[in-house]
Design a protein around this nucleic acid. Structure first.
Length: 150
DNA sequence: CGCCGGCCTG
DNA sequence: CAGGCCGGCG
């Protein structure tokens, strides 16, 4: 579900995990998971962005800032969130990931990372890009298709 | 106060 | 991931 919603509300979680009996602990637990998921996501973005800054991205040669399905960054993300390749990673997620990468890159390149809270402005952008989670995720057997459920 | 989110650590 | 800690918000 992270491929669609990086910032799911507690209601969203309850909607897409019908087989879970929610209470405060379980809910906060799931919220915590997504917090950890985001953390991993942003850490990778920062890591690759800094790498691109170091290696220097010349005009036209901004390959380092492109995130495709054959990119190393994509491989790492998929390995983390989709370890057994049970889901098809939606294009939107790839697009958002590249956007995040570029946001980190420009921020770092502009020296904005000097501000202790420099990431927050990026979070604010990314958090608005959550997509609706496919209804198939609500199916009894939970999401486990090889198609577009993920 | 209690909840929540981010940050850091193990 | 889970825990602990801290700051912001209602």
């Amino acid at each position: 579900m992270f491929f669609y919603a990086r910032y799911p509300s507690s209601n969203t979680l309850k909607t897409y995990f019908p087989d879970v009996k929610f209470n405060r602990c379980i809910t906060s637990q799931l919220i915590k998971w997504f917090s950890n998921f985001r953390e991993f996501f942003y850490i990778q973005m920062e890591r690759f962005a800094r790498q691109a800054v170091r290696e220097g991205v010349m005009g036209g040669g901004e390959v380092a800032l492109r995130l495709r399905r054959d990119s190393e960054l994509y491989r790492i993300l998929n390995l983390h969130y989709n370890k057994s390749n049970d889901y098809h990673v939606p294009d939107r997620f790839v697009e958002i990931s590249e956007l995040a990468l570029r946001e980190f890159f420009t921020a770092i390149q502009a020296g904005r990372d000097a501000d202790p809270c420099w990431k927050k402005s990026i979070y604010k952008i990314i958090c608005k890009l959550d997509s609706p989670v496919p209804d198939s995720f609500r199916l009894p057997g939970c999401p486990s298709d090889t198609q577009s459920t993920g």
